[in-house]
Write a protein that binds this DNA or RNA. Structure first.
Lengths: 338, 338
DNA sequence: TTGAAAGCGTTACCAG
DNA sequence: CTGGTAACGCTTTCAA
């Protein structure tokens, strides 16, 4: 910028103004500057600009696992929403590890991001209190930490449990098991929905019918298969299973078929997430659609509104209603020929 | 930092040195500073530091689509490799749109990244020449632009075509079609491998047997189905199909089954990429494994080596050898009971 | 072992 | 419409 100013015999300030489309610049000067800028193929340094304006146009996103289509989808739609306004996304993955997550958040904090969006792997709010203390706009997605009273965008998890379980009940399942998720808001919310559905229809959850992965990790598929094998050993064995998410459901189906049983004939299976490949699976998977792209998009809009309002607005909670998607894994009647 | 210095009656320089673990600081001072830092929960501003050191510890990644598991996997392993050395990844998606890609690259350039990793959606090297002119370390992945002589990490695409096609030949296919990919290095490389395999075994590619999507976009699955429907209308119709990637293969299988034919009985299908859900599909998909995580990891290591060497080293090309993975979609003999 | 001064590339503020 | 000056938060260099 200094060079351009010198070359043209104008001040640095003038160049700066031209580059920001500032009003008070004569057409002549503007053109001269722009020409030279093009010639040199020059782009102003955003970091330097950020230093003085206090805005980095950088938003952090922390998710447990990018390979999980759910989070990839969220990242994609979030990125798109923010990009329109010039914000870039720094994406880090926590691998479902609370300690690693805290580490990465600290890393991001050092970059003086404009905002942070997190699907957190921790249930411990301390890191986040720190973020809030720093006045950094924070949006939680998918997994809420109620004590925090932070901005949150996610699905109605109780509704997921309710929808899935009632669907199983409707197709005639009597002994419905639940492969539950981790001890966070989606995990407990979906479990609660399951319990409410059972209670409503006067069904009982037999001992051992709510099964929980030993450790929460990225390998949902495997833990789904493991848990399902345990369920199969029970007497009586379940005739319907609601799984915390689709990868677990895929693992569960695997275990059922391996045991020589049929899906949905012997055991109906439903998951949650409605991943893009659900319909192409060995047994197309019934699922609860969480409108994943809407989550990303709404989170993006919420973040932008935080970024643009100068005051600290009250925390917002956006709950998205899930929808049942029925496929072969819970179709007890013959499928019509499509 | 200024505050800390004032509070403690030392200079800003001293604080700065402590924070960078500089040698010449007495234990006493160091401790005093660190204590105060902890008290205030202070983290040095990386952007400001970057301004003077010229390093942002930011690496850009541009991929066509994060929802495609291939790129999600690459992003994940790349991110992991870079994170170890303190580099963060800014991820942007080009949606297979060359213009958008150029836009995003410009955006990234303004941030003065330390390096750029790209799976490019363009075949036009001009944007990249600009990057190279700026002296910004550039690593191409998955898709090469040979004229550019840039650093490149990718799979041996000819070998992919060869492996896949020869496998189809081995299981007895006589009329092998190819749903080809875009006009970039993987697209043409895999086509070439297909052609070499046919020539080697004295087979011919009948008219219309190499089929190309109208437009290259993110919806590989749909275009795979479309192209396959066209192939089915040919006489004679193929008895084996090698698809550019797995989503296309999934679409192709869809079309075949919808037409009332069997896979692999009537038509064997093989894709490429070996996505994590291939084994769970309606018809488990034979594929060519591209060692996706290795690509990301090697790209990461290459990037780091560029970042750490002060000279501009010669461009490196890292070619990873693909491997055949056989599943039901090309199993002509009865499957053993697993 | 410590610190003063200069500067990284940019913008805010205000005077001309 | 134009530009000088100070400042953003940090590091580098070199002298004390």
């Amino acid at each position: 910028m200094k060079d351009i100013a010198r070359d043209l015999g104008v001040s640095v300030v003038t160049v700066s103004k031209v580059l920001r489309n500032h009003e008070d610049i004569s057409e002549a000067t503007r053109k001269r500057v722009l020409d030279r800028v093009k010639e040199l193929d020059y782009t102003p340094n955003l970091a330097a600009r950020g230093l003085v304006t206090g805005k980095t146009y950088l938003v952090g996103l922390v998710v447990p696992d990018l390979l999980h289509s759910f989070f990839a989808q969220v990242a994609k739609s979030l990125s798109r929403a923010l990009l329109k306004k010039g914000y870039c996304l720094i994406i880090l993955t926590s691998e479902e590890d609370a300690e690693l997550e805290a580490h990465e958040i600290n890393r991001l904090l050092a970059r003086r991001l404009d905002a942070l969006v997190i699907a957190s792997s921790t249930t411990n709010p301390t890191v986040f209190e720190r973020i809030q203390r720093q006045g950094l706009p924070l949006v939680l997605i998918d997994r809420n930490l109620p004590e925090l009273h932070a901005n949150y965008v996610g699905t109605d998890d109780e509704a997921i449990g309710l929808l899935a379980t009632e669907h199983l009940i409707e197709i005639g399942c009597k002994r419905i098991a639940h492969l539950r998720g981790p001890e966070n808001s989606p995990g407990t919310g979906r479990l609660k929905g399951y319990q409410i559905a059972l209670a409503k229809h006067k069904l009982k959850s037999l001992p051992g019918y709510v099964s929980k992965p030993r450790s929460v990790d990225v390998q949902s598929r495997e833990s789904g298969a493991d848990l399902m094998r345990q369920l199969l050993a029970l007497n009586p064995r379940p005739d319907g299973v609601f799984c915390y998410n689709d990868p677990m459901a895929i693992g569960a189906i695997h275990a059922i078929l391996d045991a020589g049983l049929r899906v949905p004939g012997d055991i109906a299976v439903i998951g949650s997430g409605n991943l893009h490949y659900d319909s192409e699976l060995r047994i197309p998977l019934s699922s609860i659609d969480q409108q994943t792209d809407i989550i990303g998009e709404r989170a993006g809009r919420l973040t932008l509104s935080l970024l643009e309002s100068k005051t600290h607005p009250r925390s917002k909670t956006i709950i998205i209603q899930p929808q049942l998607v029925v496929r072969a894994s819970t179709e007890r009647t013959r499928r019509p020929n499509r």
